[in-house]
Design a protein around this nucleic acid. Structure first.
Length: 124
RNA sequence: AAAGCAGACUGGGCAGUCGCGGGGGCUUUAAUGCCUUCGAGGAAAGUCCGAGCUCCAUAGGGCAGGGUGCUGGGUAACCCCCAGUGAGGGUAACCUCAAGGAAAGUGCCACAGAAAAAAACCGCCAAGUUAGAAGUCGGAUGUCAGAGGUCGGAUUUGGCGGAAUCGUCGAAAGAAACGAUUCCAAAUAAAUCUGGCAAACUGACUUCUGACAUCCGACCUCCAGCUUGGUAAGGGUGCAACGGUGCGGUAAGAGCGCACCAGCGGUCAGGUGACUGGCCGGCUAGGUAAACCCCACCUGGAGCAAGACCAAAUAGGGGAGAGUUGACGCGGCCCGCAGAUCUCCCGGGUUAGGUCGCUAGAGACGGCAGGUAACUGUCGUACCAGAGAGAUGGCUGCCACCCCGUAAGGGGAACAGAACUCGGCUUACAGGUUUGCUUUGUAU
């Protein structure tokens, strides 16, 4: 469980982000945008984008942390081999943890990323 | 107790659980895994000053440019801090100040106002001049009133008055004051002679006095205009008007004189100094230097994406020596440095790929000593974030705080996130704790 947020599992290069944005598939909800693209690797990599439209540095840091925690809930239930980029839209600045988790679950479902055997549950 | 002033501190706590980044240890070739430990702020913010550090020439000389600007101290340094001085504000505690030079020069001072620097618009005063008015005095003429005098003729004397000439005056025209001569006339006076009855009213003439009118002259006063000069007391304008107030003084005024005050210069005393106080002096100098400028002091540029090393790909260079020209470059210019080209030697540069820089420090905490203080010295203690698409978080429970509600309960909780490191400044900030002081009120 503890390996899902390590550095190898993160997208770090600007070039990789540009690849996902240009070649990936996007899904959007009121507070989030998800870009997904198969990466050909035996693991998933994630990136979280919080632009200055959200607010000051404190607001951006909190949004990114909430998204990371929310992703941690579902990481074990997702198909492998994808690069995922979550972008926070301005309304995400006021999210609490439950709202962030619900939004992410909807996006992952609409992107068809949950494994067939998994039954997604919001964990305590 | 209320209101206020100046500081200091704090910025939810505890527990459980799941995570993240760094260090250390164990295992492992490595990865992985396990254990342990550390992990946001008073402003981490704005990036406004000052430094360290790095590269450019070792950061050098001159000019230009920039900065600072009461004094003394502190500091690695400062546009910072401390203690003072001065000015302004506040009843006070206390607060504020870009606070050198305006008799070095130049400029500017909107509108208004005569005038914005060495000023005369109004006003005030004097003299001259023109015209007018009133008054007083004198003269001439006329009228009126009152009082008085005179009234035939001749002669003599005196002589009012008038004319002419001459002299005096004047350049002259002329004037007519004085003198002389001549002539005219003679109201009338006196004397003598003589005539007549000679009176009164009226009348005529004349003298004096008064009043009135007109004219002339002189003086004085008033008013108006003009000219010349004096005057900065007053008016009005303005942020500001050529020191202020008072008394004297003057034609009117004025530092023209004096007293006090402000300011200036000198001197003495105190203070390291800014400055303060006393005395003396001559009497006056507008403001503006965040206008140019002058003076004193300081000041090279770029910045951790600095910069150093490594790796792969691509395929360009670098160093040393000589050296015309001095193009390009080093910081805006000059000097200077460096330098086109040739010879020799060597392996580099670019690309946000990696590693280092990169967290032991002008540091933190505590004690002691020095100092009013800023701060400094010394001793002790501990090691206290270090990422790189960027860690420091999620969930749950209890307690504490604030708001709503009778209650159960519900809701809220500021400003804000390290990015090479320090010292400052500025700005933002819910609530809470605390120290000293001031004013007012109450009680004793």
């Amino acid at each position: 469980m503890g390996v899902f947020m390590k550095k190898q599992r993160r997208i770090t290069k600007n070039r990789e982000y540009q690849n996902v944005f240009q070649q990936g598939v996007s899904t959007a909800s009121r507070g989030l945008v998800l870009y997904q693209m198969a990466n050909g690797l035996p693991l998933n990599r994630t990136g979280f984008v919080t632009s200055k439209k959200l607010g000051n540095a404190v607001v951006r840091n909190r949004a990114r942390r909430l998204l990371r925690e929310a992703y941690r809930i579902y990481a074990g239930d997702i198909k492998t081999g994808y690069d995922l980029v979550f972008i926070a839209r301005p309304s995400a600045a006021t999210f609490d943890f439950k709202q962030a988790a619900a939004e992410m679950k909807r996006l992952l479902q609409r992107g068809g990323l949950f494994s067939i055997t998994s039954i997604p549950q919001v964990k305590k």
